[in-house]
Deep mutational scan, measured.
Amino acid sequence: MAEIKEKICDYLFNVSDSSALNLAKNIGLTKARDINAVLIDMERQGDVYRQGTTPPIWHLTDK
């Protein structure tokens, strides 16, 4: 899980924002549900936040 978090942070640092599906595909996974639990956990920790569009767009925080 730590490896996936690191990949998410690296990708969002370079791209600035992404949907869960696009993010999953760009870090080597196939479906948004493969990454949603990790994104929600990271959101609780304050590492990422989502804009409430459908589907949500994920961003890194300034943390």
Score class of each variant (00 low, 15 high):
Asp34Gln: 08
Lys63Trp: 09
Leu12Cys: 00
Lys7Ser: 05
Ala20Gln: 05
Glu6Arg: 07
Ser19Tyr: 04
Thr30Met: 10
Lys25Met: 08
Pro55Phe: 06
Asp62Gly: 10
Pro56Glu: 09
Val48Ser: 03
Ala2Ser: 12
Thr30Asp: 15
Trp58Val: 05
Leu60Ala: 10
Tyr11Thr: 07
Trp58Ala: 06
Ala37Asp: 11
Val48Trp: 02
Asp62Glu: 13
Asp62Ser: 12
Arg33Val: 15
Ala32Ile: 14
Asp47Cys: 11
Gln45Ile: 04
Asp34Tyr: 02
Met1Ile: 15
Met1Cys: 03
Ser16Gly: 15
Arg44Ser: 10
Ala32Asp: 12
Arg33Cys: 14
Ile4Asp: 11
Val48Pro: 04
Asp10Cys: 03
Lys63Tyr: 02
Gly28Lys: 09
Asn36Ser: 10
Arg44Asn: 12
Leu39Cys: 04
Tyr11Ser: 09
Ala37Glu: 12
Glu3Asp: 12
Ala20Thr: 08
Pro55Gly: 05
Met1Gln: 15
Ala37Phe: 06
Ile27Tyr: 00
Asn26Cys: 07
Asn22Ala: 08
Arg50Asp: 01
Lys5Met: 03
His59Glu: 08
Arg50His: 08
Tyr49Pro: 04
Arg44Tyr: 03
Glu6Tyr: 01
Glu6Phe: 01
Gln51Ser: 15
Tyr11Cys: 09
His59Gly: 15
Arg44Phe: 04
Val15Arg: 09
Val15Met: 10
Asp41Val: 00
Ala20Asp: 02
Cys9Tyr: 14
Asp41Trp: 00
Leu12Tyr: 12
Leu21Gly: 13
Lys7Gln: 00
Gly52Cys: 04
Gly46Tyr: 00
Leu12Arg: 07
Lys25Phe: 00
Arg44His: 08
Lys31Cys: 15
Ala2Thr: 10
Leu39Pro: 06
Ala32Lys: 07
Phe13Leu: 15
Ile57Ser: 09
Thr30Gln: 12
Met42Ser: 03
Asp62His: 07
Ile4Cys: 00
Pro56Ile: 09
Gln45Asp: 14
Asp62Lys: 13
Pro55Leu: 03
Ala2Leu: 11
Gly46Phe: 00
Asp47Asn: 08
Asp10Phe: 02
Gly28Ser: 05
Pro55Gln: 05
Asp41Arg: 01
Asn36Glu: 15
Val38Arg: 04
Ala20Trp: 03
Arg44Cys: 03
Ser16His: 11
Thr61Ile: 01
Gly28Trp: 00
His59Arg: 15
Asn14Arg: 15
Trp58Leu: 05
Ile57Gly: 05
Gly28Ala: 05
Met42His: 01
Ala24Leu: 04
Leu60Lys: 04
Arg44Gln: 13
Leu12Gln: 04
Ser16Phe: 01
Ile40Gly: 09
Lys63Gln: 01
Leu12Ala: 05
Thr54Val: 10
Phe13Met: 15
Tyr11Pro: 10
Leu21Pro: 11
Thr54Cys: 11
Gln45Tyr: 02
Lys5Ala: 06
Val15Ala: 11
Ala37Leu: 06
Pro56Tyr: 02
Thr61Asn: 11
Cys9Asn: 14
Gln51Ile: 14
Pro56Trp: 01
Ser18Ile: 00
Ser18Asp: 05
Lys7Val: 02
Lys31Asp: 15
Lys31Arg: 13
Asp34Ala: 09
Asn22Thr: 11
Val15Gln: 08
Ile35Asp: 09
Lys63Pro: 07
